[in-house]
Design a protein around this nucleic acid. Sequence first.
DNA 1: GAAATTAGTAGACGCGTGTTTACAGGTCAA
DNA 2: TTGACCTGTAAACACGCGTCTACTAATTTC
Lengths: 190, 190
Amino acid sequence: MRRDREDTRRRILDAARRLFAELGYEQVTMRLIAAEADANIALINRYFGAKRELFAEVLAQQGRFPGVLDVDEEGLPRRLAEYVADRLTSGTGSPVVATISRSAASPEIHELIRDRVLSAILEPLEARLTGPDTRLRAGIATALIMGTGTLRQLFGTDVVRAQDRDALVARLTAVFEACLTVVDRPSSPT
Amino acid sequence: MRRDREDTRRRILDAARRLFAELGYEQVTMRLIAAEADANIALINRYFGAKRELFAEVLAQQGRFPGVLDVDEEGLPRRLAEYVADRLTSGTGSPVVATISRSAASPEIHELIRDRVLSAILEPLEARLTGPDTRLRAGIATALIMGTGTLRQLFGTDVVRAQDRDALVARLTAVFEACLTVVDRPSSPT
DNA sequence: GAAATTAGTAGACGCGTGTTTACAGGTCAA
DNA sequence: TTGACCTGTAAACACGCGTCTACTAATTTC
């Protein structure tokens, strides 16, 4: 039997990241993490403190949107549309959104999730916008991103056929444009 | 002490409806329902079977979107925008969406939630649409509706200021139009 | 090689959950 | 008034949860 503190710690963290993304905070038990990591339960508490702190470390470790936002404001809608479409049609999705949307209802980690949505999605998105109402526009886009996460969680990949991917990307691009771009109608209707 | 079977049953159902909408399935305990309904715990199981069945009855009892969809296809985006904006800025929201978005992560009621999203939101929405890709368009709108529910749950009414309501409604109307209306661009860009 | 340090383990602790059982007490027909 | 029936109640059940403690055993230090 190997005895490697760092390796065990890493195995636990990897298992926790996988399970939290797949099942959400509440559904993941300490015993499940221990089994998945092939480690003893007591070691989780020894190395990470409590379940909540382990979850916080998982959140802190996984970065922002993985490269999705590395594009100028003009190309942003298309980029987001492709990202969301892939998550909605393919087998796997980003653990960032999955972890958030599957754990949003747990009051114990409410603040963690809230801050995470801000720092990983809403604020970086808002930072890429120009013009008025940036917070509002970024907020609607964030709602759409998280909503597709919930939809994916409920229906799997059955909501849209894979053959509809082009239509889906086109439609989502238009929707994200409606969210993010500056409206050019100087005459406001009364 | 009054002994009224029907009244007790109704009190339990009312309490359950309120609590499920406010806290979500997992966070609501049988003892909490009993206390809120001022009834004994054992009576819940006697009258409704199990917690899952009580939740199913709550879902079955609360109707579809309350009047939100009673409008023609042209007026639908505006109507949905106002509905979502009100839920995002005012104190209270529709229990239909709240119950769904707060309970979506519980595997025990996964099928119930899935069917509920279909029968209460997605399918009636799709039925109001004409043209191609009705399922896809209604799906995106459903994602947006549920996503705003999650956003509301995380941030309360702090996401947008109440004074921004007009801008919010305008922006959301544009977004729902991008979701729902038929695109009139016969020339597809390559 | 002996002693100290540290990783790993087994098991129990207290608590809260949904559910059930045995019983008390009000209600109503005969 | 008596007795059957039904509503309501208290307590316990079995289980799973996160957490903690006492212990074993491998590794390191001298």
